[in-house]
């Protein structure tokens, strides 16, 4: 039996895990808008001549000289699909659950890789510096969420799997803190499930690792399903809370 969750789920490969594992148990989002993370990096919403909001991938992914004709065409097709799904979600006034930019791994990787290129150990920075770097790093995501807030009745963000190494935990947490803080300032709710899926240090528990085939980045279907169930519960509670407010 299929149950439709009256919301749109917007996200990257972690959202794909949620979507697939939810669908395997008959839980479907009204709109599932998922694509690999690079599709959202540098992406933006623009206003078309007809006044409608359009999704656009970054100009980098439109660079045929860089990616070749075949790949840029594939990127463009994906972008067009996302554009349609976003428009439908906006038209349907669906509440949005999103994880775009909510997994610190890209930030941590970029930071440590750039440092390594200079012969430095990128983990030897303070949380304060990591937060300062994160503030600049998330600027594009915040613009993205700015549009979601404007177009959807409610936006809620969920963190991706917290799969940090002990030496970069402080950087990961700094990113999460900055991202969550800025999103909250924009009126976005944070559905923080990190402690439910991890220990005191918030590291994702091993039971959520793929086995076999763990890639040190993603979580398994169990994680995906539990996030979907948590979203469903959150949505129900939010609806109940709104109903209570109206009494």
């Amino acid at each position: 039996m299929k149950t439709v969750i009256e919301a749109a789920l917007v996200g990257d490969s972690h959202a794909s895990v949620m979507i697939k594992s939810g669908e395997a148990r008959g839980l479907e989002f009204r709109r599932a808008i998922a694509a690999a993370a690079p599709n959202f990096i540098g992406a933006e919403f623009t206003t078309a001549q007809d006044g409608r909001t359009r999704f656009q991938i970054s100009s980098l992914r439109q660079d045929e000289a860089l990616f070749g004709a075949e790949r840029t065409e594939r990127f463009a097709r994906k972008a067009a699909k996302l554009d349609v799904l976003f428009r439908q979600a906006f038209d349907l006034r669906l509440p949005i659950y999103a994880n775009v930019g909510m997994t610190a791994i890209h930030f941590v990787r970029d930071l440590t890789t750039a440092a390594q290129a200079n012969g430095q150990d990128g983990t030897l920075i303070s949380a304060r510096i990591a937060r300062a770097a994160a503030r600049d790093y998330i600027a594009g995501y915040l613009r993205f969420y700015g549009t979601l807030v404007r177009m959807a009745p409610q936006v809620t963000c969920v963190f991706g799997p917290t799969r940090f190494l002990p030496e970069n935990r402080h950087i990961w947490m700094a990113y999460d803190q900055v991202m969550a803080g800025h999103l909250a300032d924009m009126g976005i709710r944070i559905l923080d499930l990190r402690s439910a899926f991890g220990g005191d240090d918030l590291l994702l528990d091993r039971r959520y690792y793929k086995d076999p085939g763990d890639d040190l980045v993603h979580a398994n279907d169990r994680w995906g399903l539990e996030v979907v169930q948590a979203i469903r519960k959150d949505l129900a509670e939010a609806a109940q809370s709104m109903a209570t407010d109206h009494i």
């Binding site: 430095q120 990128g122 510096i129 770097a133 790093y137």
Partner: peptide
């Protein structure tokens, strides 16, 4: 020899 972390703007 000690570069700022990636993404940190010049002023910061």
């Amino acid at each position: 020899a000690e570069r700022p972390p990636h993404g940190l703007n010049d002023k910061t």
